[in-house]
Nucleic acid binder design. Structure first.
Lengths: 243, 243
DNA sequence: ATGCGTGCTGAACGAGCGTTTAGTCTGCTG
DNA sequence: CAGCAGACTAAACGCTCGTTCAGCACGCAT
């Protein structure tokens, strides 16, 4: 039996920290991984948590197992946050919901790091987004709010990849003063990109159907919904079968 | 003056390699950096080039300077490839042009790695794409092929970020059998994503202007972009059948 | 022939890494 | 009280890393 609380009274610091030492190490690791990536050293994590490197290994067995423990922790937090915000994530902008409170910043940062690195948390997060987005877009199509697609699954995946990907690109190339402040990062990204995104979603980019029709002709039958073989050239975009 | 060619006749191998040893090391480094990232060790690069680690340092001074030399080499190659393919990159899909020949694969891979890592080559590549895309979209708008935007610069940047970002996401989460074969990667990405992309560009996603108009109302005046004059509330194209 | 610059190597150095080991301290239990 | 279990640390081990060093081989000018 671990005494969990018993030994921590020894810390001579000022404010009390009611977390287990194990939890403090884990949280320090999440923050470090979020801020400098998964190459962060055990020694720096230990220093952040105010313990010796050996204790990190003592509690988690190895750095890799510490990484796994962080993954599980963050995954559980995501699931919890989604449950608590049911429906609010409807817009498909799950990240916006998650990045609400400042104390969540390291967790959001961890998720984004993991997405960029193709880690387990990132993969799971992306699949969650795709899953939710499939549901919400099908609802939106039924309600006549969104246009139908010839391949709903592919469209949803593209939308998720493109929004997460552009966020990562913006973080990489137009980083704000403090790249760890994920709420500021999100605010900046939305300020810069929301208008063009909305514009594209509302009016598209091209004025004619020609490129799309040519492509459909070129690839033959699309997965769902018959490819209308007439392909009468450049018909104006509007006047479409809108639900 | 370096004799550059003098000593290399000593290599006892089968096929002749008319590259300088320095160039062979640099090419090996580009390939390694492309395939495993910039954390690749000097020792593995040296082994790839068939030389000792010390020789790598002898020629380049340090690993960081080798990295810089690779950056310069790849940048020069991009400039050359763009000059040779003037106009062909019109679609804004610069990468497609670059990824044509298989021997270019490591260079394209290097560029993508650098984009992901936010390196100098990546930043320069992105800015080139934005620059070109600004030109081509403004032409397309003038010709009536593309719809105008309230903020052309922001739209272009969003389009570049979203296309490069979604490509990186697809490479990360749906990697093909050989992730180094960038032509296969591109082919796969296009096969999966081109239809939804074209669909979105042609018909948009939303059926009404409501979200866009609400946002414009919310933020007040749109940015000072040139589209200011004809921003009378409705861009000319859409008849907008409000369900 | 001699000397020199240069391409090049094997061996080693020092730093940082993850991890192990041996041991101390402390609170609980019999 | 004794003894034990577990939190915890300082030190060190073994490894990989980038880099340095001393020296070898060879083409070229003197």
């Amino acid at each position: 039996m671990r005494s969990e609380v018993g030994s921590q009274g020894r810390s001579g610091g000022g404010v009390a920290d009611d977390r287990t030492t194990r939890a403090r190490i884990r949280d320090a690791a999440v923050r470090r991984f979020a801020s400098v990536g998964f190459g962060a050293s055990v020694r720096t994590i230990a220093a952040d948590a105010g313990v010796s490197p050996a204790l990190v290994i003592h509690h988690f067995g190895s750095k890799e197992k510490l990484h796994v423990a962080c993954d599980e922790h963050v995954l559980a937090w995501i699931a919890e946050a989604k449950r608590a915000n049911m429906g609010k994530a409807a817009g498909g902008q799950l990240l916006e919901v998650l990045a609400q409170a400042d104390e969540m910043a390291p967790l959001v940062g961890y998720v984004l790091r993991s997405v960029q690195a193709g880690g387990a948390v990132g993969r799971s997060f992306v699949e969650h987004m795709v899953e939710d987005a499939v549901k919400y877009t099908s609802e939106a199509v039924e309600q006549g709010l969104a246009r139908p697609s010839l391949d709903e699954e592919a469209r949803v995946r593209y939308l998720v990849y493109s929004s997460l990907g552009s966020l990562l690109m913006a973080m990489t190339f137009d980083p704000p003063d403090d790249p760890q402040d994920t709420t500021a990062v999100m605010r900046r990204f939305m300020g810069d990109m929301y208008l063009p995104m909305l514009e594209l979603f509302t009016q598209g980019f091209l004025t004619t159907r020609r490129m799309l029709d040519d492509y459909l002709l070129y690839v033959g039958d699309p997965p769902t919904g018959g490819a209308r073989a007439d392909a009468d050239g450049a018909t104006p975009t509007e006047g479409d079968p809108a639900a």
